[in-house]
Design a protein around this nucleic acid. Structure first.
Length: 481
RNA sequence: GCACGGAUGGCAGAGUAGCUAUGCAAGGGAUUGCAGAUCCCUGGACCCGGGUGCAAAUCCCGGUCCGUGCUCCA
C-alpha cells in the first residue's frame, strides 16, 4: 500500500516519498509557552503523534522535532505582569505541556529545541540573509525584504503580493517600525528597556517570530527535510515566512517536501477563543473526561477537519471509549494470558486491511475508529455469548493492542486495563453479600407485586453504584460505569 | 473584498462514476410490573442550477451558504 499525504503547498494529496529511503525527518511547530496548554494544542500534538506513529508503524525511521518558542511578546508581557523572569513563565508552561501531553499518551518527540538555546544559529542565519541582500538593518531591528524574492509569495496561501498590499495597505505607518514595506517581517527585534535580550551584530535584542523555526529545523533536520507541520492558523504568515527565510538562506527549493496542517477546534460551532469565553485548557477538559477519552474525541475527525467540541461529541466519546475499554479488559481477562495472532481470524484481518488503507490515505483516523468500533461491537457479542475461547479472545486482544493501542494510542496498558477490571471485580465481591440480600428482599416484594418496595430497593442499589437488570433468567446485577 | 478549505440522513463522518459505509440517535418488535440490558427489524441524506456520460454524491461550469486566513494564535 502507498501512503498519500495532503500537502498544503501543492493543495493536493501526494504520494509520500521521503528524501532518504526509509527515513523521515519531521518538524512540527510547537507552542509558545505563555499560558497552560489548551485543547487546540492537544489536537496538534495528537495529530502529529499519530502521524509519527503511523510512519514508524509502516517501517520508517522517524526523526521527529517539535519546538518551544520560549521567548516572545506574550511571554514577556506575562513575565512583567507577574514580576518574574520570562524563563520562569516559559518553564512553568512547558512543564504543564509535558504533563498533559504525557497523560494524553502523546509519545515524546526526539527533540524539543528551544529558541533560547538556538540563538547563535539564529544570528548566523540572519547574518547570512543580510549578506545575501535578503534582509536589511534598521534602528529597531532586522527585516526580511519580501521584494527580494517575490516569486515565493503565496506558496501556501495562493495570495499574491498585490492582494496583501490591498488587504493590509497602510498598516506600516501605524506600527512605527523601520519596515520598508508592510509585508516585510522582523528577523531580529531590538530590545526595549528592561526586555530580555541577547547580544548580536545589530545590537541587543531577540529573534523575530518566524526565524526560530527556520533555524531550528535547519539545525536538527538539515538543509532539506520531509515534513513540516503545524496548525492551519500558522500557514500565513508564519510558514510562508519560513519558506522565505530558509530557501533564501540555503539557496535551493523546496526545503520542505510536504507541508501538513491540522484543523482547528470549535466550541459549539464557534471558534475557540479567550474573548468568546469558550476557552478550554487541557486541564479543564480533564476535569470532565479521562485523558484517553479526550484523545479519542480529538481523533474522531480526520486531522485536517475542524473538530467541534460540544457536549454531544463528548458524551459520544465517553460511551464509545468506555465500550472499547470494557471489551478490551474482558477479552484480556478471558484470554488467560495467552498470546495469539489475529491472522487466522477473517473479520479481524479484513478490519486491519481497512484501517491500513484508511491511515495510508492521509492518516484518516476516522476510518480507523470506525473499524475499531465494529471490532469492539463484534467482540462484545462474543463475550456476551459463551464463545470466550481464550485463544480467540487473545486474537482480539492482539488486534486491539495493535490498532487501538499502538496506532491510535487510545488504549491503556494491559496492566492498567486488568487492574481496572480487577478493581471492579473486587468492588463487586466486597458488596456482593449486601447486594444479594437486598435482591432477595426485592424478589419477595416482586412476588407479592409490591412494586413500590421493589423500586425502593432498586433505588437503594443504584445509590451504591449497582445496576439491576431483570431478565428472562432472573435478576442480574453489575457495577455501574 | 481577496485567498484557502468545506457543504452527504437528527448528529458525527466515509465514499472520485454504476451495488451509497460505519457509529450514535430515532421508530417498530421480542422480553418486561416499570426501568435497564440484550436481540431482531425499519425508515431516513448526497446545497442549488446547468453540462458531460448508458450511468454523477462522485467529473466540468455557474451560484448560494459555512469555516478559516489576510493581525498574535495549534
Amino acid at each position: 500500500m502507498t501512503l498519500r499525504v495532503y500537502d498544503t503547498r501543492s493543495r493536493s494529496k501526494r504520494i509520500f516519498k521521503p528524501l532518504v529511503d526509509g527515513q523521515v525527518g519531521i518538524y512540527a511547530c510547537g507552542i509558545t509557552p505563555y499560558s497552560p496548554s489548551h485543547i487546540g494544542h492537544a489536537r496538534q500534538a495528537i495529530a502529529f503523534d499519530i502521524i509519527v506513529r503511523w510512519l514508524r508503524k509502516t517501517g520508517f525511521k522517524v526523526n521527529y522535532i517539535s519546538n518551544f518558542t520560549d521567548i516572545d511578546d506574550k511571554i514577556i508581557s506575562v513575565s512583567s505582569v507577574e514580576g518574574v523572569d520570562f524563563l520562569e513563565v516559559a518553564n512553568r508552561n512547558i512543564d504543564d505541556y509535558f504533563q498533559v501531553m504525557d497523560s494524553l499518551n502523546v509519545i515524546r518527540a526526539n527533540s524539543y529545541p528551544r529558541v533560547t538555546e538556538t540563538i547563535p544559529e539564529i544570528i548566523e542565519m540572519i547574518q547570512d540573509l543580510i549578506d545575501k541582500k535578503h534582509a536589511y538593518v534598521t534602528d529597531d531591528g532586522v527585516y526580511f525584504e519580501i521584494d527580494t524574492a517575490p516569486e515565493k509569495y503565496g506558496q501556501l496561501t495562493g495570495q499574491t503580493l498585490d492582494m496583501v498590499r490591498k488587504g493590509a495597505g497602510g498598516r506600516v505607518e501605524n506600527t512605527g517600525s523601520g519596515k520598508r514595506d508592510h509585508r516585510d517581517f522582523a528577523l531580529w527585534k531590538s530590545a526595549k528597556e528592561g526586555e530580555p535580550n541577547w547580544i548580536s551584530p545589530w545590537g541587543k535584542g531577540r529573534p523575530g517570530w518566524h526565524i526560530e523555526c527556520s533555524a531550528m529545523s535547519l539545525k536538527h533536520l538539515g538543509e532539506r527535510f520531509d515534513i513540516h507541520g503545524g496548525g492551519t492558523d500558522l500557514v500565513f504568515p508564519h510558514h510562508e515566512a519560513e519558506i522565505f527565510q530558509s530557501e533564501c538562506c540555503l539557496g535551493h527549493e523546496p526545503v520542505v517536501q510536504y507541508w501538513l496542517h491540522n484543523g482547528m477546534i470549535n466550541i459549539d460551532g464557534e471558534k475557540m477563543s479567550k474573548s468568546v469565553g469558550n476557552f478550554w485548557t487541557v486541564r479543564d477538559a480533564l476535569e470532565k473526561i479521562e485523558p484517553l477519552v479526550l484523545r479519542y474525541a480529538l481523533i474522531n475527525a480526520p486531522y485536517r477537519q475542524p473538530v467541534d467540541f460540544n457536549s454531544v461529541m463528548i458524551d459520544d466519546s465517553i460511551s464509545h471509549h468506555g465500550r472499547l475499554l470494557n471489551s478490551y479488559s474482558k477479552a484480556l481477562h478471558s484470554s488467560e494470558g495467552l498470546r495469539n495472532d489475529y491472522i487466522g481470524v477473517e473479520n479481524l484481518v479484513e478490519a486491519a486491511d481497512r484501517i491500513r488503507s484508511g491511515m495510508d490515505d492521509d492518516f484518516n483516523t476516522r476510518i480507523a475508529l470506525v473499524e475499531v468500533q465494529s471490532v469492539v461491537k463484534y467482540l462484545a457479542s462474543l463475550i456476551d455469548s459463551d464463545e470466550k475461547n481464550p485463544l480467540l479472545m487473545s486474537s482480539y486482544v492482539q488486534w486491539l493492542e495493535e490498532f487501538a493501542g499502538e496506532v491510535l494510542g487510545i488504549l491503556p496498558t494491559p496492566e492498567e486495563a486488568i487492574s481496572r477490571y480487577e478493581d471492579k471485580m473486587l468492588r463487586r465481591s466486597e458488596i456482593a453479600a449486601r447486594v444479594e440480600s437486598l435482591l432477595e428482599m426485592r424478589k419477595s416484594a416482586r412476588v407479592s407485586k409490591n412494586w413500590v418496595e421493589s423500586d425502593r430497593i432498586r433505588d437503594e442499589l443504584t445509590e451504591i453504584g449497582v445496576v439491576v437488570e431483570d431478565g428472562p433468567e432472573g435478576t442480574k446485577w453489575r457495577i455501574s460505569e
